[in-house]
Design a protein around this nucleic acid. Structure first.
Lengths: 211, 211
DNA sequence: CAATACACGTGAGCC
DNA sequence: TGGCTCACGTGTATT
């Protein structure tokens, strides 16, 4: 019963008297903001997931779930590989220790795949974020690199440094600064047999550049 | 549970002319199912993320985003570590190289940082695959579109057609054909209030282009 | 015109 | 009480 008009104290009816603008409208706008916020979050989630299937809400969430599971799996793979490499290394040269103590250090840094979920919010200014990176073969003797990073004060410098340090035969390069990111494309001439190797090397160097 | 079929015949409620009531109730139950499905997905997402601050919707999504970013960062770290280990290995024993079996084996196991970017080439000949699509706001009046597709005989044509059909104010555009994909970037001038709308429209049009 | 996906304003419940 | 989140049924837009 009685659920006709519970709200508002002042008078009945709609009519004029708009001043009150009612408590209801405040709630309306609040709810609107809430919805917007949630939609934005969902949009941000989509941007965090590098897979495009459909734009519909449910699909976004589904893709996110799949992506998370793949990342977890991939991480396990990498962990295993590292362990393998380390054990090989130790087996090969059991003599060494502290001098090359780096691996130990790294090992302790390499926390396991899920216990490290402490944000430690890397959203500071210094680190470079790599939004997109592709190293492609064009024919037999050419590599093409496409790279997109966020723009910090020294992104360009570091990107250039990386490419210099790799001592590549650069045929042509282009770098563009947008308002908040930097895009770079590079054509590289390579020997055919070192192509694959170089590909990996470039990828790794760029990903390592971040820190 | 249980809300599979609540609807059933027209029944009670709105007595008036059956026409509208049946249609309305069908829509009602459809919408209800849709909401339920979405809520379930969200629940599944929460289950995929090991740490949840609150179980409020927005927080679930936020936590998922943070978690994804952490996983990505962690993956980069691991890649860097592997690189280091491998280079140390090569330095120590330059006798064998990447052409030798071992590193190759390792290399092939360690897929690159986001193999999901370029999914397993579902080799259907005609349809266009969208590997990557971003529509970004640059300031108030500019949209930036970045698009990567696989290369088919008419990818370029279709991509261009899509952008033409949208009747945009294109400031600048660039399209590059690689050996097996096509990359296109576009700068677009927009009115501020239609920006969000256009963003979605562009996304939809491009995703619809695929087949 | 169907079917579909979303945003809306609103009432209910929960700190 | 008030702030906050949620699910609801409906209107609206896209295909």
């Amino acid at each position: 019963m009685n659920d006709q008009q519970i709200n508002l104290g002042c008078d009945n009816s709609t009519s004029a008297g708009g001043t009150s603008s009612t408590i209801a409208s405040k709630n309306v706008v609040k709810e609107k903001n809430r919805r917007k916020k949630l939609a934005d979050k969902l949009l941000a989630l989509r941007e965090a997931v590098p897979k495009i299937s459909k734009l519909d809400k449910a699909s976004i969430i589904k893709d996110a779930i799949d992506y998370i599971q793949n990342l977890q799996e991939q991480e396990r793979r990498l962990q295993a590989e590292i362990m393998e490499l380390e054990s090989k290394r130790l087996k090969k040269d059991p003599g060494f220790d502290f001098e090359q103590g780096l691996p130990v250090l790294l090992r302790s840094k390499r926390t396991s795949y899920d216990q490290m979920y402490y944000p430690r919010v890397a959203r500071s200014t210094c680190p470079i974020q790599v939004y997109e990176l592709t190293v492609t073969s064009l024919g037999e003797k050419v590599l093409f690199v496409s790279l997109t990073c966020n723009k910090t004060t020294d992104t360009m410098i570091r990107v250039c440094e990386v490419f210099e340090s790799l001592k590549l035969k650069i045929t042509s390069a282009n770098i563009t600064a947008l308002s908040d990111m930097v895009k770079k494309t590079v054509w590289i001439e390579v020997d055919e047999q070192e192509k694959e190797h170089l590909k990996r090397k470039i990828e790794r160097a760029i990903l390592a550049m971040r820190m």
